[in-house]
Design a binder for these strands. Structure first.
Lengths: 155, 155
DNA sequence: ATCGCTGCAAAAATTTTGCAGGTAA
DNA sequence: TTACCTGCAAAATTTTTGCAGCGAT
């Protein structure tokens, strides 16, 4: 997963998991497959890149579910390891579906105009983490890295 | 500033600017040097690492100034380029004093237990930015990078 | 003396929680 | 049937704003 040659990842590779695969993950952990949860998973599944709570709400057909339910669902999905929470500077958290077994460690190139996202597959910072840990005495060093810029369409 | 050999920066190198130097920067731009602003600058000046709004408030002697004034001051100082705003995942923004002329581009190694911070002077990602820009067509590519771990004292 | 700054209070924005009723399994 | 889930409303957070009066220059 790490130490790869630089490459950008297309959306198809990580998204478009079938819905039943997702709901089965719920069932396996004895959570219920309800309307709101299916609707939210559909939205995450179909969208490329992390979505904010508001963006999810806007995409739900007129009040498929309550805002509180979205928050509760995102907490559940995060705790189950089905989504990963990101923070792109200011604004609330954003959530992105994770494939089963994926720890979600990857980075984004985010357009500061339209919030469009390109995913970056590889992570080059393993060596840097090790070096930092050695030099600073910290244990369990991890990192968060996001790139920002203006995408071709917005230029 | 960039492309340096890896090194950790001690606090002394970036903080401890004399207070008059800071207030003069306000005066030069025709802002007033008031009690709250001096108190806030003192706190930022004396503390190593970015502080949250709440941490600033706690350090102010019993209601040296109103919470709204802290928010307004941080906006002003940020707009003037005197502080830089950071986001370490969840929780509110954090602010760190900047030397005159410093664009504030640097990273941190943050202890997830005590929130202690080690600054990381160099930035290794210039090449990565260039590569990403070329490959993705994005312009003006920048990045945010923070490291997390458990510091020696908290282990 | 002037205009900017401040405290206070209210509002706005975001996230969490309690509770009674509904629903998946 | 039963435990979990949901909507609704209220509360808790965090940040912003309006306004009248004070204070740095």
């Amino acid at each position: 997963m790490r130490r790869k040659r630089m490459s950008l990842l297309t959306s198809a590779a990580t998204r478009k998991m079938p819905l039943p695969e997702l709901t089965n993950r719920l069932r396996r952990k004895f959570h219920k497959v309800t309307g709101p949860r299916q609707a939210i998973l559909q939205i995450l599944r179909r969208h490329h890149g992390p979505l904010s709570i508001k963006e999810i709400q806007e995409r739900l057909s007129d009040d498929d579910c309550d805002l509180a339910t979205i928050y509760r669902s995102m907490h559940l999905l995060e705790e189950m390891g089905m989504v990963k929470r990101f923070h792109f500077g200011s604004g609330g958290a954003r959530f992105e579906l994770l494939k089963e077994g994926d720890d979600g460690h990857h980075h984004h190139l985010v357009c500061t105009r339209c919030a469009g996202v390109v995913e970056i597959e590889e992570c080059l910072l393993q060596d840097v983490e090790n070096h930092l840990a050695r030099r600073s005495g910290f244990k369990g060093v991890t990192h968060k890295l996001e790139f920002f810029g203006i995408c071709p369409r917005c230029q």
